[in-house]
Design a protein around this nucleic acid. Structure first.
Lengths: 228, 228
DNA sequence: GGCAAGAAAATTGTATCCAATTGACGTAAA
DNA sequence: TTTACGTCAATTGGATACAATTTTCTTGCC
């Protein structure tokens, strides 16, 4: 089976993963040469991937200065959470009205996989916590809504990478179950309330620490997947 | 005063305008070298601009086939309107709570400029009708929310280019005034209701006509602005 | 005339090359 | 010592050249 994705897609995905898994920390520089060398592709590809990441808000580029992993300000963080609440409230509203056939099965399966890594604060845990919300959005069948939710979820991951000490996904998993239950009961108000609390919980921390590491040493862990 | 924008930005903006003003019609092909030739830039620039437009949903690219002006399906159109309603409801909620200083002045000034072109169904009318909603979103001070609203508004313009006979901005302007009044009165429910009606009004038409024109002949009207 | 296969043309995917801008370093003068 | 200035290295902005893929046209066969 042949992969039909373009190289740009591959680099884009890998860089995104590296960012949300906090391997590439906020503020870290992303020189096109270095990244391209690591992945064995030319600057052209990296450039395209960086453009996409910028549109997603995960990367900012300064003219003639290059690309950096975004460092959302507290103001920006508030904005993102505000939008995310509105979007996820809409998701809940839709799902309470029309949940697809195997929706609950998928959700519960996901929660189980979250519980299986409970306790560990590794990259996998971070990714899974975000993917719950992404899955929720996908179940609406609304691709546009789904895409926006994915975007804000990713940016929230970045925000937490900056401002939260630990991801502390323990409480999150429990609340995920509660949200499912509330939707199943058709209680939009309750589900929204839990979601608000769920999102609000992570927005109340504040500690900032930077640790500029070597870019290439980090990317070497991601690059091997491109050697086809 | 030196323009500090990059060439990619310029091409991006021009193409976007051409699309939402319906000069470039849905389904129309956008070959990279044709566009580049028209604007006097290389394919590299056009390519970057097209990537951005794709992220905005105004353009779709098929692998090794090239870029086309997006042709939103009715399903997709419904999705976009659904998201737009949710986002604009949030905008209203925020503005009823915290409208900035000169907010009402700006809004009323905009409505006046809309009224000044009342009756004409030209590109200017289309653009202004959309910009009212964009302005509304910008007044929230939430850049993320503002960006998402802009995106769905643009895509709605594209949808109406496909499915609506005329833009019929007559009723729109009146409702714009009503929305301002309702927000001023702090009546979120009423403002949202008007907005819903306002958005719902345009989603009930259906006629499709394609008219594939020469790309370069259209772009020549936009290209002169790049000759610096 | 219709259909299939192959060659040619057009267009995108990717790499490389040159120019322009920025930041840093070093040197000299106040 | 501090500040101003000039040079240089590093990096991006943009263009061109080549490779790969798709589409279309042609040609031959039924």
């Amino acid at each position: 089976m042949e992969e039909k994705t373009t190289l740009t897609d591959a680099v884009h995905t890998l860089l995104r993963r590296a960012i949300i898994e906090q391997a590439l920390k906020p503020g870290m520089r992303l020189p096109e040469d270095t990244v391209g060398e690591q992945f064995g592709v030319s600057r052209t590809i990296v450039r395209h991937a960086l453009v996409r990441l910028e549109n997603e808000g995960l990367v900012v580029t300064r003219r003639n200065r290059g690309a950096f992993v975004a460092e959302p300000s507290l103001e920006e963080a508030r904005n993102i959470f505000e939008v995310r609440r509105a979007l996820e409230a809409e998701v809940i509203r839709i799902l309470a009205d029309r949940m697809p056939e195997s929706g609950y099965d998928q959700l519960e399966a996901h929660v189980r996989s979250e519980q299986s890594v409970k306790g560990k604060d590794g990259p996998v845990s971070i990714r899974l916590a975000g993917e719950f919300h992404t899955l929720l959005a996908e179940l609406t069948g609304n691709a546009v809504l789904s895409r926006y939710v994915s975007e804000v979820v990713l940016r929230c991951s970045l925000i937490m990478a900056m401002y939260a000490k630990t991801h502390s996904s323990d409480c999150a998993v429990d609340e995920h179950s509660q949200i499912i239950a509330a939707i199943r009961a058709g209680d939009v108000g309750k589900a929204t309330a839990i979601m608000d609390h769920h999102l609000g919980a992570v927005a109340g921390r504040a500690e900032l620490e930077k640790q500029p590491d070597s870019v290439s040493s980090i990317l070497s862990r991601y690059g091997k997947e491109l050697v086809s």
